[in-house]
Design a protein around this nucleic acid. Structure first.
Lengths: 110, 110
DNA sequence: CGGCGACTTGAAAAGTTCCGCAACTCCGAA
DNA sequence: TTCGGAGTTGCGGAACTTTTCAAGTCGCCG
C-alpha cells in the first residue's frame, strides 16, 4: 500500500473541487451524455472541458466510450450521486444563516 | 446575484481536498478535540495545522472555542460525517474497479 | 508582574492547478 | 482521398495553494 488512505481521499475530494467538474457530474447523474451536450450546457472552451473530463477520468469517477462520431461520458458508479447529495446537505447547513444561496438551493436542488 | 451554487459546491469539496484537513475531520467525527490532541496525532508543524484549521473554519465546516488554556475544535454539522462516508464508498468502488481490471489484464497475459 | 505553553498570523518561497492557444487524432461523408 | 466535425493533447504563463519561519496574542501560574 503505497498511498495512505487519507491521501487518496483528499485526492478524490480535490478532484470534485472545480465548478466545471461539478457541473459535469450533475449532468451525468441523469445518465450518459456526449461531450457535445456537455459543451452546450457548460460555458467553457472545448479544450478546457476536455481537460476537466480527463481529470475525472483519471480519478476513475467517470468512464468514456465512443459511439459513432460522438464520445460519451458516464458516472463510473452511482455512489457519486450520494456524494453530491451529501455535499448539498452540508452546504445547506453551512449557509443557513447568511448568503442567499440557501434559497436557490431549496428552489432548484442543484 | 452572489456566487453560483455549483461554485460554492466546488469550493466546499476543494476545502476537503487536503490530507491534513481530511485527518482532522476524521478525528473530529468522534467529538470535539483540543488542538494539542490533533497535533499529537497528525505529523505536521503547529503553524501548518493551524492554517489548515483556519481553512476549515473559514469554510464553516468546523467551529472552535477556547476552554481554559486549550482551543477546542468541533464539526459544525454532523452531515460532514455522511460526506466522509460517501467518499469512502466511492473510493472503494473506484479502487475495486481498478483491481478488477488489473486481475483481468493479468489473466489474459497482456 | 513576567514567563511559559498553546495556539494564530503574516509574508515570502515553493509547489500546483488552471486556461487559452495551436497542433493533433479519429471517424464518417462526399 | 480529402474534408469537416468531434474531441484530445501539449505547452507556457497566470493564478492559486501550501509550507515554512518568525513574530504575535492570550490565558494561566508562580
Amino acid at each position: 500500500m503505497s498511498v495512505p488512505l487519507y491521501q487518496a481521499k483528499a485526492e478524490m475530494f480535490r478532484t470534485l473541487g472545480h465548478p466545471v467538474r461539478i457541473r459535469v457530474l450533475e449532468l451525468l447523474q441523469d445518465g450518459p451524455r456526449p461531450v457535445r451536450d456537455l459543451l452546450a450546457e457548460i460555458e467553457v472552451e472545448a479544450s478546457n472541458l476536455s481537460q476537466q473530463l480527463a481529470v475525472l477520468r483519471r480519478a476513475g469517477i467517470v468512464t468514456s466510450y465512443r459511439d459513432g462520431q460522438l464520445v460519451m461520458y458516464a458516472l463510473s458508479t452511482s455512489d457519486v450521486a450520494d456524494l453530491l447529495a451529501a455535499g448539498r446537505r452540508i452546504l445547506g447547513a453551512v449557509l443557513s444563516d447568511r448568503d442567499g444561496l440557501l434559497i436557490e438551493l431549496r428552489a432548484r436542488g442543484r
